[in-house]
Design a binder for these strands. Sequence first.
DNA 1: TATAATTAAATTGTACTCAATCGAATTTAG
DNA 2: CTAAATTCGATTGAGTACAATTTAATTATA
Lengths: 172, 172
Amino acid sequence: MRSDNKANFSNKDITPFCPAAVAGPDASAFSPEDALKLDVQLCFPLYAASREVIKNYRPLLEELDLTYTQYIAMMVMWEQKAISVKDMGQKLFLDSGTLTPVLKALEKKGYVSRRRSPDDERVLIVEITEDGEALKNQAVTVPQKIADCISLEPQEAMELYRILYKILGKEI
Amino acid sequence: MRSDNKANFSNKDITPFCPAAVAGPDASAFSPEDALKLDVQLCFPLYAASREVIKNYRPLLEELDLTYTQYIAMMVMWEQKAISVKDMGQKLFLDSGTLTPVLKALEKKGYVSRRRSPDDERVLIVEITEDGEALKNQAVTVPQKIADCISLEPQEAMELYRILYKILGKEI
DNA sequence: TATAATTAAATTGTACTCAATCGAATTTAG
DNA sequence: CTAAATTCGATTGAGTACAATTTAATTATA
């Protein structure tokens, strides 16, 4: 009744995070093992869609000599001009173990500079360079190109956006 | 008017993938550079939420001596008993460069065995072992525990699930 | 004010993730 | 039939992710 490799459920018998949790009074259709089926997971398509979408950036960002992680770090820089590693980490949900090599790579390309804060030597201030500012002009077309290869209705995009930020603990 | 580090938009002036694309007739509020703001992206919260959610699995899966990638590979095995690397790759959206070491690690732990297909020596068949089957009993509690630490309304979870599979090219 | 606690980055080690490439096996075309 | 094209998995190299640890700097406390 279902084509292979294609998810299908009626909303009365699932909850992606855990069927049993939201199945409600009529949870009889679920055996405990059903909770471990790939089709029933919500985390898995979240993880897979994230990777699939980011894959679309690669050819576009290659022209700017940026990886996706470097690109979102530059997004922060284009807005902030100067920011500490810690503050950038909070914005991007990344820790210093990830950001340190990313920022060193961006420094090597000449898009940012790194220096310690005079006020607090523990703090490393990342600052955008002129080349980094100039890169923005080449980057402005990227969002539209990404939009073109992912087909969601505007209200779906809005709803996805809202739910993702709810998961991230920032309800809007 | 807005608290720092918190996204907020009215649906008349955004589209997360690209503001200009969905802003509609009244797109005047957007300058081109607005498209590069982190708050306006849809890919970014997708990427961040994916990592944040998967982080929750780590302590749970540690007890099973599995990583998240190994866990989703085992999910496939619990349903299929035997499958080729290629077919598993299609289910998980992962290629051989990722799966080969993951499956070797699972073989080392004794949860799967690997052998070439007699019909086609190019094909590697992954088969679940008794230990792998037994592991399922320890894993059944994982989905509920994950559900407990992510608070979405059932209909939000359903909608997220649907949209993610739409992005993955499997509309439901 | 010594010292303890805390904080911020960097480092280390493990584990992906993926593009590109390779080599062996199989299929297809001529 | 046989050479070319395709397919499958493994390998390689670059770049993350992230927990845990380390080091240096700052702040709090007895």
